[in-house]
Design a protein around this nucleic acid. Structure first.
Lengths: 347, 347
DNA sequence: CATTTCTACTGTATCGTTACAGATTGCATT
DNA sequence: AATGCAATCTGTAACGATACAGTAGAAATG
């Protein structure tokens, strides 16, 4: 089916329309294939004038190295694998991350391959697959746990990677994280400044590292600003309908909170529905603060106080980190934390 | 950097820990490499017992063909490229499509590579890149125009592909589309049944094929059910803030509509904001019908009448279509249109 | 018995690239 | 004149898989 560029047998005279290879350039310049290869990678044992000549011809022909050839010979895939959890997603969370990553990769030979999996299944599967088949030069994973087995495995096997979120078990690796502790702390502050004292927290699942960050920020916030917690027995991973129902029950109860901190944008929509179902109104009976990765909440209820997590930026940071790691940069230098921003929801 | 499996020089005794290749299996079975290769693809000239033996050893070793080897030799990449427009996206539209596609691909040797681009730039660029570098066996594109140059080019070059949306210029190719005409027609019906007669349409940009579908459905709807159009001079691609402002102005004007049909979920959020900014209320002063690809609108306003477009399903359909096309199935047989579903928003 | 035919298997070349071990040339050093 | 030594350039082999053109042996044919 595929038309392979077999031009002639002995002398190999390159035909016109085929995709150019090193051989084509070698033929046109009268040089050897090896010389052309080395010239294009600016090797020290090639003359300056020759390099120039080769580069010109290559550009002229629109030469692009054959990925399969390079990969077979060197093992370099020029692929970054993005492992995505398919069930976490209602909003444009992962799209934004993908676009952030590709912004960075667009200036490089790297391609981005999506490796999806369900986090109800074994989360090690996609990572093991990538390692066993050597199908990528670097990996990006999210939903990080304090002692994440994927992080351990990737480190152990020397596969460059970056994580969206941190670990907490003495593992050193590139990551980008949102400062959830600062977010939760500031969220409490905002609520207390509006006179709220009885605050509920819709937290992430406890197995994820940032559960602890959120908790700490929340609790020091309660302490620092003098407020108390109203327990909420559901987390951001629950189905939206469950969140709404549980919030509704809570809001109807005698000790309903007058403030809610919400750790995820999609969950905030369900929380809001629960509040309204209970006949309460934001801004009047209570206030809500939520993190969001896509600026949508204020379109729904301007009263929601929102902190923005820039996931696109996260994608950019992680892409840069993985590439730097591939290039041998120490992991310690490839860690970043972004601060919540509080766009004035005043409109 | 990469550890290539170079075991011994002459006799090539395979070592233990390396990734198995055909050579490994050949060594273990005592057969030739060619025989093993052919046995694994069930070629007719290999004995039944031999095939069985080879398969067992291969399974035992966890053999997976080296993609670079296959690709270099045969030109088959085992890659499906998904060309995504990075600016169209606020909701989880493309994520859902990606997940639908990967559901289908997970049972195959295909990987999914994301090729993003900005539709303000030349939309041919990513397609040309894929064609020129032969970096995929199949392509999926969206935002289709009636005489889409990408469709022309892909057809011309014999590259298998599927589109999300149809063309309208005598081009025959695999596609999956949502029945936007039916949607718009039914939308008008729903509004008229609620007693609405003066209806505005937030339509897609006119260069996209489904602009015409929406228009036709809308206009026959107006005619069939006896309603009139209130012009709305903005489309779904406009910034949300613009949509809101223009809708607000319209709703404040003397001839404000009493019904709105909206062709995109994210735009509906802005339309809703515009309505509220004008002090009008859904269900009382007017009704709105919107298409959505993620079930989010009813969390925002239960009063919005929503039609669901299952983008995940679209992803599945397109993935199946591309693969079928790669396998030589005629394009005519790979076209599908999905009907709008109207989930009872009554929860 | 010689020849053909079929079955089952195999060696070699090749895809495009790069690592490695030369090869050639000119020029300075002994 | 012989030697050493940079500076440049090049041929060969190999990565893993498969297309192609065989080969060996058994069975069928005349």
């Amino acid at each position: 089916m595929e038309n392979k560029g077999n031009f002639g047998n002995a002398a190999s005279t390159p035909a016109a329309r085929e995709r150019p290879t090193l051989k084509t350039i070698a033929f046109m310049t009268g040089l050897g294939v090896t010389t052309v290869s080395r010239a294009l990678k600016d090797a020290p044992d090639i003359g300056a004038e020759t390099k120039e000549r080769v580069r010109m011809v290559a550009r002229q022909l629109g030469y692009q190295p054959n990925r399969a050839g390079v990969r077979l010979r060197t093992g370099k895939t020029n692929v970054i694998a993005l492992v995505l959890s398919i069930d976490e997603e209602i909003m444009g969370f992962s799209s934004q991350m993908v676009f952030g990553i590709s912004e960075v990769l667009s200036g490089t030979p790297y391609h981005i391959v999506i490796t999806p999996h369900s986090h109800s299944k074994d989360p090690m599967l996609p990572v093991r697959y990538i390692l066993d088949t050597g199908s990528a030069d670097g990996v990006i994973i999210s939903r990080i746990e304090p002692d994440d087995p994927r992080v351990r495995l990737l480190s152990e096997r020397g596969m460059p990677f970056a994580t969206h979120g941190r670990t907490d078990a003495g593992l050193t690796h590139p990551f980008h994280d949102f400062d959830n502790e600062a977010f939760a702390h500031q969220a409490v502050e905002k609520l207390v400044k509006r006179g709220r004292r009885r605050i509920a927290l819709l937290q992430p699942p406890s197995k994820l590292t940032y559960y602890a960050h959120i908790r700490i920020g929340f609790q020091t916030g309660l302490h620092d600003y003098g407020a108390e917690e109203v327990p909420l027995r559901v987390n951001t991973d629950a189905p939206l309908a469950d969140i709404r129902d549980i919030v509704e029950v809570m809001m109807r109860s005698a000790n309903a909170p007058d403030g809610i901190v919400c750790s995820a944008g999609s969950a905030a929509i369900a929380v809001n529905a629960g509040i309204e179902a209970a006949g309460k109104a934001l801004g009047r009976d209570l206030d809500m603060v939520s993190k969001q990765s896509v600026p949508i909440l204020n379109w729904i209820r301007p009263e929601i106080i929102t902190a923005q997590e820039d996931v696109r930026q996260a994608g950019r940071e992680m892409a840069k980190a993985v590439i730097a790691r591939i290039d041998g940069v120490e992991p310690e230098l490839l860690q970043s934390v972004s601060q919540p921003t509080w766009p004035e929801s005043g409109r």
